[in-house]
Each structure stands twice: as C-alpha cells, then as structure tokens.
Design a protein around this nucleic acid. Structure first.
Lengths: 109, 109
DNA sequence: CTGAATCCAGCAGGATACTG
DNA sequence: CAGTATCCTGCTGGATTCAG
C-alpha cells in the first residue's frame, strides 16, 4: 500500500477534489443542474471569485459541465458530467466517515 | 446531498486527511508499524518539520498512535489506531478513483 | 535518531470594484 | 447575472539551525 503507484493515485484524487470548496460544490451538483447564482446562495461563505475559480478547475478536470446561455441577462448552468458522477460513491464514503468522526469527537468531549 | 449535514460531514473528513502529506503518511502506516526514520525515507520530499507536524495532527485526531521508547538513541514508532484503520477503505476508494483518473488523463493527451 | 524552534517565501484564498 | 481584474492577507509549508 505504501508503494509508489498507490500513493500517487491517492494524491491524484486529492489534487482534483482537494480544493477548499470542491467537495462542497460537488455535493450541490449531485442534486442536479444548478445555476451559478443557486450555487452561490447555497454556499454563502464562498466568494464569487473562488466559486468561479473552483468551477473552472473542476471543468478542466472533466468533472463538471458548463452550459452558457447566450442571452441577457446571462445564464450559466453547471452540471456533473457522466465522469463526474463517478465521484458520487467517493463522496458518500467521505461523508460517512466524516459523520462517524463527528460523532466520535462529540463523545470524546 | 447538498444539505448541510452532508456537506459538513464531507468537510470534516477533508479536514482530517486534507493535509498535504496526510494521505501519503497513512498509506505507509497501512503497511504496519513504522519508525520516524522509515517514514522519512519513504517520503524523500517531505521535510522533518512537516512530517512531525502532520504526524502530530493525525495523532490528535486519534488516527495514529505514537509509541516513544525512552532510550538512547531515541526511537519512536508510529502505527494506526484501530480507529485509524477505518480510513483504509476510504483510502482504497480514493486510490481507485485516482488511478482511473490517471488513465483517463493519459488517454486524453 | 527524533524533534523543537526560527525564520521566511509562495500561493491559496479573500475583499473590493468594475463590466458585458 | 455571471463573471473579470486587482490588490492584499494569512497560512501552509520549506530551509535551517539547535537540542536531548
């Protein structure tokens, strides 16, 4: 398990989803197509800049799709690509572990 | 899935394993008990400071156990706690996804 | 051998203002 | 509405030195 192949695979994943907001964004998009403003409202603490930036990176990695409607006012929809949906089980596992960890922390204090 | 509980669970997990070296360290410890020097040799790019720091954080989160042998020269062994071993399946899933992603990237270029 | 203590650089990320 | 464009801050992480 400590072999190079395994380690770099794990690091690879973290590079894709390791951004401060990436996972949270993915959580939202798992629920379906979302407009920029919807995402922003769902994450009050993220700045516009960061949201845009992280969305771009996810797009570059092929995780999400960006659909621009050429109209006024502008409208941009974000959705998971088929590939992006392969993150779903990963996300669930991370959430499961995190929840158990949360409970554990609460018990210990 | 975009609900608050789910999101914060995911974030919780990332806080525990999101450090730059945490996952790599865990990979090594999955193989069994390791001394500080062994870990260092297995990760030539990490600095002493970072290794110590990240090990402390993992220890504080109850993921790993630190066993100090009071002797000269010093000897310190690190191992996963039982709790830490619950990260194993998470790690495997991250590695699986990362490997597939790696292959995908190679195909696309 | 393991690790504490400094000092420091780089960059991720935040605040704000402006635009098609 | 959905972005750019700046500017700036803070913290993560790196280099180096000292210590038990």
């Amino acid at each position: 398990m400590g072999d190079q192949r395994f380690k770099s695979s794990v690091e690879m994943t973290l590079k894709v989803i390791g951004g401060k907001w990436k996972l949270v964004i993915l959580c939202h998009l798992m629920d379906g197509v979302k407009r920029f403003g919807e995402l922003k409202r769902g994450m009050p603490d993220i700045t516009q800049k960061m949201l845009t930036q992280q969305l771009r990176e996810l797009e570059d990695d092929g995780i999400i799709h960006r659909n621009v409607f050429v109209q006024v006012p502008p409208k941009v929809e974000y959705s998971l690509t088929e590939y992006g949906r392969t993150m779903e089980e990963v996300l669930h596992m991370l959430a499961d572990w995190g929840q158990k960890h949360q409970e554990r922390v609460e018990v210990l204090t």
